[in-house]
Design a protein around this nucleic acid. Structure first.
Lengths: 239, 239
DNA sequence: CGGTACGTTGAATCCGATCAAAGCGTGTGG
DNA sequence: CCACACGCTTTGATCGGATTCAACGTACCG
């Protein structure tokens, strides 16, 4: 069974999240694009570079065109939380606060489209198609965020990693071979685990023959049924 | 320091979440209410009764007018996850799927306003103010859901309960004395802990003099600073 | 070559889960 | 009115999965 099949049940378009009140989306280039294009500019970000930082004035919203970015926050005591990984088609930055409450960094070279926040908000206020698109995007992102809460609240380390791998494969549109753009530490902070636990769990999956690893960032899912079974259908609830 | 002060930093209006792609909100009765009122009806639900069940056709969206409801889901293996508790002003049911993916039950007698889903969606499609209100509500709900993910991923049992109590006090609009409408099991399934751990943590807080308990559902927050300190500012990030 | 950053593996520890039993409160029926 | 049962909560003892601490391996780069 392919990953796509597992994920077909989802809302069709793979939908990620976004940052603090900002939403992630599967924005479609279609009719109304004209209005959006009028205020858009493009931006290339090299691997490791930040797009914005927690605390900066939130003056723009972005769409990922290619590459992958990591959205993260720090707790006062230094613990880091990875809010999400965003891929092509995802939006972020529609925060309601004056400032960003997340840091966004490229983990692969990425190309973004930039929408000035004031102008995008003004457009949404008066343009029904834009408003509806953002509304739908936010709804989908909310749905994804709630599934993630369930994952974090109820699943074990193995279950979390299995769900993560399947979700990622679905979002990246691959069926078996999955090039992981992020490092173990990123995955750990995303899943609420430690680096060591993530690493050990990868090893377990490998020794059970559920995945193959050709280097730490190149995973092949060899037994998707087992992984899906373990993941408790967290990402197939909207069946 | 009062709980309100701790929470003033939040988006003004206390904003809860909603169910699967549906959003929770602080809906304001204002100008455009006319259009919404035209399709609204009211509904009283007694404590313990269900408003809708996971798997039912999702034919309506609701706003809580009074009381409190619990939104929950079951994993295939029987584990339960409490997605949220909703109070007066909160919305739920704007799911994108054909069916509800959550069960919603009253934990206090509650009064709801019911909006037929097809008509509400049609209204949002053509009415800019309604669309914008839903868009904002979804954004706020998303922001809240992301804070909750951080809580679940990074905080210890004590930190989670402290954050929960402060959040609840803020949402219920009380400063110190907090009538808990939900039982220990509900809190456990909301925070990703067990009943026993929740109970023990309440006891710890009591013996440290941070809270007083007059019966298990009547809590008084006596040292909010300590609780806020423990909660790592998870609910004050949008400062 | 070192050096550095990342990943894996091992051993010890700890927090929260699990198993078990005992309190408590409320409501119902004898 | 009391006895009892049932549901919820608290507390105790033990277990186990994930973290922590530590070491080693590996790849990349100056």
């Amino acid at each position: 069974m392919s990953v796509q099949q597992h994920y077909r049940s989802e809302t069709m378009q793979v939908v990620p999240m976004a940052i603090g009140g900002s939403m992630p989306i599967g924005l479609r280039r279609d009719r109304e694009e004209g209005a959006l294009d009028a205020i858009a500019s493009t931006l290339a970000v090299a691997r490791g570079e930040a797009v914005c930082r927690d605390g900066d004035p939130a003056d723009a919203c972005y769409r990922i065109e290619s590459g992958c970015v990591r959205v993260s926050r720090l707790l006062p005591d230094g613990r880091r939380h990875v809010v999400d990984f965003l891929f092509a088609g995802d939006l972020f930055g529609l925060a309601q606060g004056r400032d960003y409450d997340c840091t966004v960094e490229a983990i692969c070279d990425a190309n973004l489209t930039r929408y000035p926040r004031r102008r995008l908000e003004a457009l949404a206020e008066r343009d029904l198609p834009t408003c509806n698109m953002l509304r739908r995007a936010a709804g989908a992102a909310l749905s994804a965020a709630q599934r993630r809460s369930m994952l974090l609240a109820q699943l074990s380390a193995e279950e979390r990693l299995a769900a993560f791998l399947l979700d990622l494969a679905g979002r990246m549109g691959v069926s078996r071979r999955l090039p992981l753009p992020m490092c173990r530490g990123d995955i750990a902070d995303y899943l609420g685990l430690t680096i060591e636990t993530v690493s050990r769990t990868f090893t377990k999956f490998r020794t059970r023959g559920w995945i193959e690893l050709r280097g730490s960032q190149d995973v092949t899912l060899t037994d998707i049924d087992q992984l899906a079974d373990l993941s408790e259908g967290v990402f197939a609830l909207a069946a």
